[in-house]
């Protein structure tokens, strides 16, 4: 039983075990390895993608539940890495090892889509699902504010 969904704007048909979590379908079947495995149990956020615009953990979402849904992964967030969150991450030099950062960026971009000017508390609330073992949280907060400022068209070009 094939399952159809849109991934990064393209129609995709999955003819694999319908129990397969979206994470592994993206990584192994489509070769979209930007979405990371970290825990497999909705505890670390490394696998965060957008499902119909909302941040979801792909490691616990079987593809059987995603028929007809729209998925966006880190590779599809912007055509060229130019999403304000991606730009802010570069500008603030957020990543260390970088492994959790696609998940952080997907959580942050979903937050800003709903809450364009989040407070620190709102950032913490939305991103506490995402573990960063390298400890880049301070820079993540800064970068979310930076991205929010750019989205509001008031970036001063000198965040740090």
């Amino acid at each position: 039983m094939a399952i159809r969904m849109k991934v990064n704007g393209e129609e995709r048909v999955f003819d694999i075990d319908p129990d397969t979590p979206l994470l592994w379908a993206l990584r192994d079947t489509l070769g979209l390895t930007g979405t990371k495995y970290g825990c497999g149990m909705n505890r670390c956020g490394a696998c965060t993608v957008h499902v119909d615009g909302r941040a979801r953990r792909s490691c616990i979402l079987p593809i059987s539940r995603l028929e007809g849904r729209e998925i966006v992964t880190i590779e599809g967030l912007s055509p060229d890495g130019g999403h304000p969150v991606q730009k802010a991450w570069e500008k603030i030099n957020v990543p260390q090892c970088g492994y959790c950062q696609p998940g952080q960026i997907m959580s942050a971009s979903a937050l800003l889509a709903e809450t364009p000017q989040p407070s620190d508390e709102q950032i913490d609330g939305a991103l506490q699902v995402n573990i960063c073992r390298c400890g880049t949280y301070q820079r993540i907060r800064l970068a979310v504010h930076e991205a929010a400022a750019e989205l509001a068209g008031e970036t001063d070009g000198e965040a740090r």
């Binding site: 390895t33 930007g34 992964t73 590779e75 890495g81 991450w89 570069e90 990543p95 970088g98 696609p102």
Partner: peptide, 13 residues
């Protein structure tokens, strides 16, 4: 900035 940051934020690392 770390040289791999552009790839990291694009999911290409």
């Amino acid at each position: 900035a770390l040289v791999d940051v552009p790839d990291i934020v694009r999911g290409q690392a």
